[in-house]
């Protein structure tokens, strides 16, 4: 019997007496690529922090790879990319190589000393992400996009089975973003890496994810991409435009255009619909 990568049961989280998340129940299986969306303040980042053990759930249960989160120790199986690179101090003196190597600490016991295998793993991921030429540069001197790639490398350095990404492409330019999402897609299809990704970019979900979880303190929709696209409830809840952007897999533009606000989903954005390709399908 296969074990779910993630299993959430009746999860409720309160902060200062207010329900931030209510009665969540869902599971993520091996090879799932889940797009986690929802308006601002819907609890997406709180859910991510609960999954990583950074917050303790008030009620309910979180199981990672079949184990209750309190007993889970094999953090090398999980790669995490935080929401922002703003915490990187401009004068922070560590090199790219030193920062990426920090990802290898998850599997070490005290004293955590990095050896040749770790250095080789770091080199591999730097080359895979095309940043080997940056390895001796201080991370504090890099651009936001380069810093984001360094953090992505740190998340991938252990070849994790589950990637948890909190708005991973926010600082990337369009070309790098496309390459990054292609890399995730390759990991997902070739190595069956499960992915849970918070994003405001509906087009990205449409192009890459296999499941969609819409959160607004509780689960509004969780299902496969096909279920989303054929659900009349979804059309009623999200509106035809949002459903169209996702289901027709237009994605965000890569030719220099920016994301446009989506009037039907406050706080979210969508790639332009692409009138030339499917204007006739737009409701």
């Amino acid at each position: 019997m296969s074990v779910d990568v993630l299993d959430i049961r009746d999860l409720t989280f309160r902060y200062n007496g207010v329900d931030v998340l209510q009665d969540l129940r869902f599971s993520v299986e091996t090879g799932d690529y889940v797009g986690l969306v929802g308006p601002n303040g819907s609890g997406k980042t709180t859910l991510i922090r609960l999954l990583l053990g950074l917050l303790e759930a008030g009620q309910g249960e979180i199981r990672l790879f079949g184990r209750p989160i309190g007993e889970f120790r094999d953090w090398t199986r999980i790669g995490y990319l935080p929401q922002k690179t703003a915490f990187v101090t401009p004068r922070f003196p560590a090199t790219v190589r030193e920062i990426v190597a920090l990802g290898r600490l998850a599997g070490k016991r005290f004293p955590k000393i990095l050896g040749r295998t770790d250095r080789e793993a770091v080199q591999r991921v730097l080359e895979r992400l095309d940043i080997a030429d940056l390895q001796d540069r201080p991370v504090g001197e890099l651009s936001g996009g380069q810093q984001q790639r360094v953090l992505i490398a740190r998340a991938l350095v252990n070849d994790p089975d589950l990637l948890i990404l909190d708005e991973p492409a926010s600082a990337l330019d369009p070309e790098v973003r496309d390459r990054f999402f292609q890399l995730l897609a390759d990991l997902n299809t070739e190595r069956r890496v499960s992915i849970v990704m918070v994003t405001h970019d509906l087009g990205t979900i449409g192009r890459y994810s296999s499941k969609l979880l819409y959160l607004d303190k509780r689960i509004v929709f969780y299902g496969t991409y096909e279920e989303f696209c054929h659900s009349e409830d979804v059309t009623r809840i999200f509106g035809a435009f949002a459903q169209h952007v996702i289901c027709h897999r237009h994605g965000a533009p890569t030719d220099g255009g920016g994301l446009t606000p989506n009037p039907l989903l406050p706080g979210m954005a969508a790639g332009p619909c692409g009138e030339d390709r499917c204007g006739e399908e737009r409701k």
Partner: peptide
């Protein structure tokens, strides 16, 4: 460097 990610890596 990053307290939150350090915590997330155990």
């Amino acid at each position: 460097f990053d307290e939150e990610s350090a915590r997330a890596s155990g």
